[in-house]
Simulated assay, not measured.
Amino acid sequence: MTVFVAVLSVLVGALCLLNLLLTVGVIRRLKEHTAHIEELRSSASGAPVQIMLPAGEEVGDFSARTVDGAEVSRGSLGGETLVGVFSPGCSACAEQLPLFTELAASFPGGKDRVLAVVVGDAEESAREIAELTPVARVVQEAHGGGTSTALGVNGFPALARIDTAGRVLASGYSVSDVEVLAGV
């Protein structure tokens, strides 16, 4: 019996030592990750993240069909156009969508000068599409679709004003960014 207790004690001691070593390793990794996160935060805080093509860049060619069945392309953007790209389930999109629809409703040229792109599954996008349809030509597409790719979208929401030549006049992730940059 004493041999059994001695073996059991050695085994428990070895397991405790292994647990201690693993815990020290996890703590070391957490410190490294924390340092990397802080480094990323400090480098990102100096410059704003570009959510889509910046002012002065030219929108790529695209062709899509709106939810109403109309054809829309870069060539069909007549005059200055307000563009909004949204995704269902995005909290920032939910915050900016009412502001965007309000701006779109008063945008010069009306619905023909407003393009809204909803990126996501058609079923998930139904609420956004319903809100945007009265004030914009709405395109619903999957992630990586042609319209959002042509606009250089890398996050949501992405908003812009585009001139007749397809050049971005202003872009950002909030309605106020687009209004300020466009001089509204």
Rank of each mutant, 00 (worst) to 15 (best):
F4A: 11
L8K: 02
L8E: 10
L8W: 09
S9I: 04
L11M: 12
V12N: 00
G13Q: 09
G13M: 10
G13S: 09
A14W: 13
L15E: 05
C16K: 08
L21E: 12
L21R: 12
L21F: 08
L22C: 12
T23P: 01
G25F: 04
V26A: 11
R28A: 09
R29H: 03
L30E: 10
K31L: 14
E32D: 09
E32W: 10
T34C: 02
T34D: 14
A35S: 01
H36Q: 11
I37A: 15
E38Y: 13
E39G: 12
R41K: 10
R41S: 00
S42V: 07
S42R: 13
A44K: 00
S45A: 14
S45W: 01
G46C: 05
G46M: 01
V49Q: 01
V49T: 13
Q50E: 06
Q50A: 08
Q50V: 02
L53N: 05
L53A: 03
A55H: 01
G56P: 02
E57I: 05
G60I: 12
D61Q: 15
S63Y: 13
R65W: 15
R65I: 15
R65N: 15
R65F: 12
V67P: 15
D68Y: 14
G69L: 08
G69W: 12
G69Q: 10
S73T: 12
S73W: 06
E80C: 09
T81M: 14
V85G: 00
F86G: 03
P88T: 14
G89A: 13
G89F: 13
A92I: 12
C93T: 02
A94G: 11
E95L: 08
Q96V: 09
Q96P: 04
Q96H: 11
L97D: 00
L99E: 07
L99D: 13
F100H: 07
T101S: 06
E102L: 08
L103D: 04
L103R: 06
A105G: 13
S106T: 15
F107S: 07
V114M: 11
A116N: 08
V117A: 03
V118P: 03
V119Q: 03
G120E: 01
G120L: 00
A122P: 03
E123C: 07
A126I: 01
A126D: 06
R127V: 15
A130T: 04
A130Q: 07
E131D: 13
E131M: 07
L132P: 01
P134L: 12
V135T: 02
R137P: 00
R137T: 05
E141Q: 03
E141Y: 05
G145S: 07
G145T: 03
A150M: 09
G155N: 01
P157F: 11
A158W: 04
L159V: 08
L159E: 00
A160C: 07
A160S: 01
T164C: 06
G166T: 10
G166V: 09
R167Q: 04
V168M: 04
L169Q: 01
L169T: 08
A170N: 04
A170F: 05
S171Q: 05
G172V: 02
V175N: 05
D177T: 07
V180Q: 09
V180G: 08
V180A: 10
L181G: 09
G183F: 06
V184T: 03
V184W: 14
